[in-house]
Computed example of a mutant assay.
Amino acid sequence: MKRGFIFYNRTGFLTLLNREIHRFMKVPVQTVLAPLISNILYMAIFGGMLQTRSVGIDGVSYLHFLVPGLATMGAIFAAFQNPAFSIISQKFQNTIQDLNSYPISVTEKILAFIFGGMFRGVLVGVLTYAATIFFVGYEIEYPLFFVLGLTATSFVFASVGLIAGLVLDNFEKMNFALAIVITPLTYLGGVFFEVSKLPGILSSIKYINPIYPLVNITRYAYIGVCEGNIYTHVLVTTVLVISSYLIAAHIFKKGIGIKTV
């Protein structure tokens, strides 16, 4: 096998990536349709009840404010769950050690799991936007940047999902991390409201909440404005993409959750 700059065995990498994508596409009702319906219900309920609510961004309705937040939230949950569920499932089936025998490089293994989760996250995020066209129309300020924002968000949380899958050893712990850590951070990251309007110390959480810049990048791409400085959000997001991957790669290369089960 000829070594490349990144890929040692391109066919093997694509095979593993294809497996990760087809694994969730076999049950689209659970992995794609369910979160999509949840986001539509959020849109219908919150949008219906609060559509006249004022937003601290001039000229922006609450419904338009809500759409990019829901798309980002859908991408976060979907991207996290895909690699986390895949790795923990292999632990449950006692086949996780087989990863060591795959004829592909460690980088290819890591990227296959991350790209699989990233694809699912972007898919759910884009479909969420498409589903909201009925409520708010199809206008979007920067379409390419919108997809790029969802891609960066999905990459970050696919990496986090891979970390969770390696470190955690059962589905209960994974669901606990999702419910107790990621979900509150998502809600406090500006999905449903402006973080600056939170009372007291809650408004300061944005400085340590990694989801806050991700939501605002998508919101800027959708409506052309956002809370805070877009250049700062892009910089922080770039750091998150790089650091999340490096941490996931370090844990994977050390064999945590793979060599000892």
Rank of each mutant, 00 (worst) to 15 (best):
V124G: 05
A221V: 11
V126E: 03
A130Y: 13
I88E: 01
G47V: 08
E139R: 15
I37R: 06
L198I: 07
F113M: 05
I88F: 07
V106F: 00
L66Y: 02
H22M: 10
K26W: 08
Y138W: 12
L198V: 08
I258C: 10
L14A: 06
L150E: 04
P213E: 00
M1I: 05
V181L: 14
G224T: 07
I211H: 05
I133G: 08
R3M: 03
G121F: 06
A131L: 03
S101D: 10
K206D: 03
S243Y: 01
G255P: 06
L16G: 07
F80I: 04
M174C: 02
I201A: 13
Y231A: 11
G200T: 00
L188E: 14
H233A: 11
L246E: 12
V55Y: 04
T11M: 10
L150T: 01
A79Y: 05
F192R: 00
E227R: 13
G228A: 06
I230R: 09
C226K: 08
N216F: 09
F85K: 14
I205M: 04
S89C: 01
N175S: 12
G190D: 03
T232F: 08
E194K: 13
I37E: 08
A112D: 13
A34M: 12
P83H: 12
L148A: 14
G149W: 06
P83R: 09
I163A: 07
F80K: 01
E108G: 06
I211L: 15
A158E: 11
I21D: 05
T151I: 02
M49Q: 14
E172V: 08
G149C: 12
I180P: 11
V191I: 15
I6P: 01
V261F: 15
F65Y: 15
G149K: 02
P68F: 02
V147K: 10
L235S: 07
T151N: 00
A44Q: 07
L123M: 15
V147Y: 05
N9T: 11
A131F: 05
M25H: 04
A249I: 01
F146H: 09
L17V: 03
A71Q: 00
Q93R: 10
I133N: 10
